[in-house]
Design a protein around this nucleic acid. Structure first.
Length: 340
DNA sequence: AATACGTGGAT
DNA sequence: TATCCAAGTAT
């Protein structure tokens, strides 16, 4: 691992921030101003989600809920409807929980330190550092995937970023480098660098504004960084989705309040061991395939008239279109349309 | 420390 | 197609 002198650190900050001022994505909607509410919403949406995916969601969300009080006092159904299709739905529920905490318990007075911000639901070390630095100028590194990638290459840090304990190693390495005058811009510049020149695949470090500081590039080993152990493949699982019609209604089932797609409505889903279990009853020629982070579902549609159980309900199209449905369910509805 | 938790894009 | 990635957090 490389060690930088104070002079090197100061020159790095200058190069990075000069580039950021001229080439950073200043037009991103969450960079128009640094109100903590706007930063919070953007950071939660951006967790494990690409910028281009977030943009339309963010715009709609801020129109619907311009202030933390608006979000705090909105019906959860409306919040989830605006989150429909974004995934990781606990983020939406936690975001509203955090808004209630700030608006109601703290009377709108935001926690200003990284440590205190972590008291908000859904706000971990990264998000807290991002808000603290961007909104309140706290000198603290926001250690996200970009920071792991950028600094693992600049400093040749060999620790496995899949390991939880590695976060502290990066935090400690980056902390003395963060610009004490502009910590928020420093963190955002690292993110912009990580999504432009210092990408995971096909990086262009030769033209990077901080090429001279890149030890891995210098040594021709850039693509070895960051060191990251592989995750297991998603487990394959087979399901039957029951299509039960009554008049002009379809039967939906509310999923359990914990676990995958918690509390969301889908067709009743039953796991099967093999396609043989439904002996040619399936409506679709090809299964609906839906891949989660850790599971790969293949789903067959089967028509079957059912009397609703307690967690099941017949809904008209008008009714289910007003619900927030997971993308999985939208795929099933589309597949059903194509069968008719 | 491992694992659960969504979805869409890129190669 | 398979695989990995994309501004992580909660348990």
């Amino acid at each position: 691992m490389e060690l930088w002198s104070e002079n090197t650190i100061e020159e790095f900050r200058r190069q990075l921030l000069t580039w950021y001022d001229e080439n950073g994505r200043a037009n991103l909607p969450w960079r128009l101003n640094h109100e903590p509410y706007r930063v919070l919403v953007s950071e939660i949406m951006l967790q494990q989600t690409q910028v281009d995916t977030v943009l339309p969601y963010y715009e709609r969300f801020m129109i619907a809920f311009p202030t933390v009080q608006d979000l705090a006092h909105a019906p959860e159904t409306q919040v989830l409807k605006l989150w429909e299709g974004l995934g990781y739905y606990s983020r939406a529920r936690n975001l509203q929980k955090a808004a209630k905490f700030v608006a109601d318990d703290l009377y709108g007075n935001w926690p200003e330190s990284s440590d205190d911000l972590q008291e908000l639901a859904g706000v971990g070390p990264y998000t807290a550092a991002a808000i603290a630095s961007i909104s309140f100028n706290e000198v603290v590194p926001a250690v996200d995937g970009n920071a792991f990638r950028v600094f693992s290459r600049l400093l040749k840090i060999d620790d496995d970023i899949a390991q939880a304990k590695t976060r502290k190693i990066f935090y400690d390495a980056i902390l003395p480098i963060v610009d004490p005058q502009r910590p928020g811009d420093f963190n955002q510049a690292i993110m912009d660098l990580g999504s432009s020149y210092m990408t995971a695949k096909n990086p262009d470090s030769e033209h990077s504004p901080v090429q001279a500081f890149n030890a891995a590039y210098r040594d021709g080993v850039e693509l070895l960084y960051p060191v990251k152990t592989k995750k297991p493949k998603p487990v394959k699982q087979l399901f039957v989705a029951t299509v039960s019609r009554k008049d002009n209604q379809l039967l939906f089932e509310k999923r359990p309040e914990t676990g995958l797609l918690a509390d969301f409505w889908t067709f009743p889903l039953t796991q099967i061991n093999s396609i043989e279990d439904i002996k040619g009853e399936q409506l679709n020629i090809k299964p609906v395939v839906h891949v989660f982070t850790h599971r790969r579902w293949e789903i067959w549609l089967v028509k079957h008239q059912i009397t609703p159980l307690e967690n099941q309900k017949y809904l008209t199209q008008n009714e289910w279109q007003q619900l927030s449905l997971p993308t999985l369910q939208h795929k099933l509805l589309k597949a059903l349309e194509e069968c008719d």
